[in-house]
Computed example of a mutant assay.
Amino acid sequence: MQREQDAIIAALAPVIDGIVATLGSFCEVVVHDFRRPESSVVAIAGSVTGRSVGGAMSEIGMGILARGDQAGDELNYVTRTQDGKLVKSSTMVLRDSTGTVFGALCVNLDITAVTQAHALIGELAGLAAPAPVPTTTFGDDIDSVVAAIVDAYQLEQHRPWAELGREERLELFRSLDERGVFAVRRAVPQVAARLGISRASAYNYLSQARIDTSQEHQA
């Protein structure tokens, strides 16, 4: 199936240029190859997230990767880049004729200016402020994406690793695994360094988290 998957990706390259030419400078279209998660960006047109060919997938891509062939399209979601841009996106999975998910086509629209105008009109009209938007890490370096996911989880707990109990630590590794973090090469050492623990400890926590998850599914 590799030849078929390669052909699908090759066929999309001219398509993404046409989409950006139609929608304009606020649009970016990216083709991801999940067979190479550390550098999944194989084609890109436009510039919204600042990535280039050879760049990394975001947290959203990792989540799709983790769901494998059960993954579905993620349509019309809004995130915020680390430099403050508001981006409206749709991520559509790529499947071969057997149904295997092997990549994704992502359309990103920079809606920062539109949102600012909407907020101003809403303020003048006395409407409630819009709900906060989650930040997504877009970059060419997969390590920065992994680090951002780990940091975000710790912020959610309002406590550093040293203050977490064993079950909370296992839950952290379960959550990272479910988000597709450990599908990336070197992710375990990267997570260990971010948490300030040994690689051996990180591998042990991951192994135990997967055992617990497997037992829950069998129960």
Rank of each mutant, 00 (worst) to 15 (best):
W161S: 03
R210A: 12
S40Q: 07
L120N: 11
A219W: 14
V101Q: 00
A21G: 13
A131D: 14
N204W: 13
L172S: 09
V181G: 03
H32D: 04
E168V: 09
S40K: 02
P130M: 03
I8W: 09
T213N: 05
I111M: 12
E4W: 02
G126A: 07
A152K: 13
E171D: 13
D212M: 09
G72H: 04
Y77D: 08
P189Y: 06
L23G: 06
P132D: 07
A13D: 12
Q2S: 11
F26W: 07
A113V: 12
I121N: 09
D212I: 15
S207L: 13
H158E: 11
V78T: 15
T91M: 03
M1T: 15
G50L: 09
A147C: 09
G72D: 08
A45R: 08
Q218G: 13
P189F: 03
T91E: 01
S25W: 02
V41K: 02
A152E: 10
S39K: 05
I142Q: 04
R3C: 10
Q70G: 15
S198Y: 04
M62Q: 15
I111T: 13
R199I: 11
Y153M: 06
G18K: 12
Y203A: 05
G126I: 01
L164I: 03
A43H: 10
F34V: 01
H118W: 15
D141V: 11
A209P: 08
R166C: 12
F102L: 04
I197E: 07
V191E: 10
V133N: 04
A192R: 09
L206M: 10
T79R: 10
Q215R: 14
D110F: 01
I142K: 07
S214E: 06
P37W: 06
H217L: 14
F34M: 03
E74C: 07
V145Y: 06
V42N: 08
R3M: 14
V114I: 14
L124R: 10
V87M: 02
G122W: 08
S90V: 01
G126K: 06
I44E: 07
V31N: 00
I197F: 04
A219E: 14
M1A: 15
A45D: 04
E167V: 13
T79W: 03
Q116Y: 13
F138Y: 12
S214C: 02
L23K: 08
D110M: 00
A129R: 14
R174M: 15
Q154V: 07
Q215N: 13
G126R: 07
R36T: 12
T112K: 00
A71V: 04
S207T: 15
L164P: 00
E156I: 00
A45M: 00
L164G: 02
E156K: 02
R51A: 04
G68C: 08
R35E: 02
I211G: 06
L172K: 04
